[in-house]
Design a protein around this nucleic acid. Sequence first.
DNA 1: CATGAATGAGATTTCATTCAT
DNA 2: TATGAATGAAATCTCATTCAT
Lengths: 218, 218, 218, 218
Amino acid sequence: MALRKKAGEPADGGGRHAAGEDPSKRTQILDGAKRVFSRTGFDGASMNDITREAGVSKGTVYVYFSSKEDLFGAMVEREREVLLGDVIALLEGPEPTDERLTRYARRLVTLLCSDEVVRWVQVLIGTSAKMPELGAKFYEGGGQKGWRKLREFLDREVEAGRLAIPDTGLAAHQFAVLATAGLWRRRLFAHLAEPPDAALVEKTVASAVQVFLAAYGR
Amino acid sequence: MALRKKAGEPADGGGRHAAGEDPSKRTQILDGAKRVFSRTGFDGASMNDITREAGVSKGTVYVYFSSKEDLFGAMVEREREVLLGDVIALLEGPEPTDERLTRYARRLVTLLCSDEVVRWVQVLIGTSAKMPELGAKFYEGGGQKGWRKLREFLDREVEAGRLAIPDTGLAAHQFAVLATAGLWRRRLFAHLAEPPDAALVEKTVASAVQVFLAAYGR
Amino acid sequence: MALRKKAGEPADGGGRHAAGEDPSKRTQILDGAKRVFSRTGFDGASMNDITREAGVSKGTVYVYFSSKEDLFGAMVEREREVLLGDVIALLEGPEPTDERLTRYARRLVTLLCSDEVVRWVQVLIGTSAKMPELGAKFYEGGGQKGWRKLREFLDREVEAGRLAIPDTGLAAHQFAVLATAGLWRRRLFAHLAEPPDAALVEKTVASAVQVFLAAYGR
Amino acid sequence: MALRKKAGEPADGGGRHAAGEDPSKRTQILDGAKRVFSRTGFDGASMNDITREAGVSKGTVYVYFSSKEDLFGAMVEREREVLLGDVIALLEGPEPTDERLTRYARRLVTLLCSDEVVRWVQVLIGTSAKMPELGAKFYEGGGQKGWRKLREFLDREVEAGRLAIPDTGLAAHQFAVLATAGLWRRRLFAHLAEPPDAALVEKTVASAVQVFLAAYGR
DNA sequence: CATGAATGAGATTTCATTCAT
DNA sequence: TATGAATGAAATCTCATTCAT
């Protein structure tokens, strides 16, 4: 299923649209593309499926996006911010640090191991070889942003004297991976067919907080 | 002019085989397939490319493998054990626990973040949605096996009174993810274009061991 | 330089059609398919040949027909009614029964033994093993229909007191096979390379009528 | 499934075999070929299937037969005499003419409408377009031979004063087709999925004899 | 002479993309 | 601008035939 043309310069696709283009039509196309790409991956999706799902004609898609790759990129661009959403907000509050970390981790694991996110990440990682900048961009908007927020939170906690962390950037990574401790990895490889149940999540999260605080708590 | 025999080693190379299927030819095909799949992923690879890369004819591939999926599966089967190799051996030795853990983690990170393994894992995760049993099998032979060995190691250390771990299975996962703390994840998304340099590895590994021992050391 | 539009009649040719599928294009494909299938049979025909003969691209064929079998079936469906045409009409008229039977038989033999019909029947019989429903359907539209009409004619003649037939259904079959008496069979096996000449037809037909009336005349 | 080479001059295949060739091996191959061709037709049969069914290797087949067509031809050559076998013998005997005709016709219909013969004839007719000489040759050995014998029988009956037939050649054809009266034709088109049951055969045969004798009896 | 692994042209079918309407 | 019929390159897979052993 090799691509016919290496897609020279994406004509438009990026964002700003020429005179006469209908932004709602663009949204409509992206919505259809999202559903189809998520179901079948990049190579598995046919432009036919996408036009059918979006309810527009083939020609119209090519008015808004110069190629399949361009469309895929635009969709990633639009979606990447949405996935992690407001998880960060859970870190804030008057509760003790461990409680807030637990709350945050619980939500993070549940989200990352959900069918939707796993599917999405599989698709993105699968295309990272062909379109590396896309994977990177996606990570920027997803994991990277979350990491930055978490680091800032840790900085504040350190400043407040509630944690003692020499390298909060590294610690933020550590907490994130401790939270999923193998669950996410196994989900990506389909070694876990279903999202982990609440008990497993709870056990993993509790241990993650405990290990983290054993190292960085006061 | 057909290239009837382009193969480096002409004859057999191994020895006895029942009906005639030449194992060296099989190996030759799998080698070619490995290179092509690794470059382009499952969907992106064409059987034409593979035959060209392997130096055999199209028909020959189908003598040894009944379909593209079959070929892909056979290749995964062959490769999955090789990747992690003897990392586990580094856990053994007379040295103190932290030293052995550091040695192990250093190697694990270097391996997991290597271009080859990252590429490989990207391909596998990319196909895990379509062929879940293959991803799972790969994980069984790779991560799962490593995890089991690590858990057994931790069990022995606990028994020896050098560590205090309530759940060694969970702890094994935790150590593994702490070792790569975000590096592997970023590599998968091509957010890190190159393998991490030695200093970054060292810093990450050292911190991983420190955190782990802070939680589970005596 | 692609031959984007090679079609003789460019536009439509027919009139209203719901979604856009061009009936003239469909006809064009069926015409090409008919020629190729008739030359080489089902298995011997390649879709490439058909597209070339029809003057359309490969993809276009698959827009109108979902598979080679589908195309073949559609063509049989279209042709089966045409072959026997208005032979039946020859049975009607004010002339004496024997004259009408002779006229009918003469035309039937000529038609059945014509190159076109023989070729067609060979193809259909050749595929009847693999696609029985198609052969049956063809026979329904061809021989079966003719047989029914002939039986009805005989019924009327019996009712009119001009013939005495205990089983008109069986008699209809008998008259039809008497008319071709071995000629059709030999044509099918290519034992007769050419259609029988007029004299042979006349002799066969005359004898058929004579035998038939000897048995069922009054 | 077009043939690669138009099969220049069949090297051997015809009959006489070069020094060193094993006639029993030739028979073995033909037996396998007969089974496979009869199941799938000419185009549908693969040389692989045939070698497997015959229990010989590919190379061996090509020692005895120069091509797939050659093999098919040789098999038809061998089989064509066998099918109709000793039906003719049923015409002889001390019984009255009508009884002998009935006995003969009964057997003829049963044989011609049997699954095996129908399948065989379908295959032959299906290939008659591509290989006309084969169909003709087959008919020579089958129908034609039967027809000759029947004509000779009629000649004798005429000579004996038991029948009055101006053209025994034509009459032989007429009796043969009256005997199957549509049954065979419908079987060839798969319009009759099963061989006709005994009652139907009996009715058809009885009527055939009656019609025939009404025209040609004394 | 017998074997069957290997060949590679060619089969059917799909699909990203174009362009006349 | 929107449409979707048409394109044709390329995909996977088959198979008659050859030839080194």
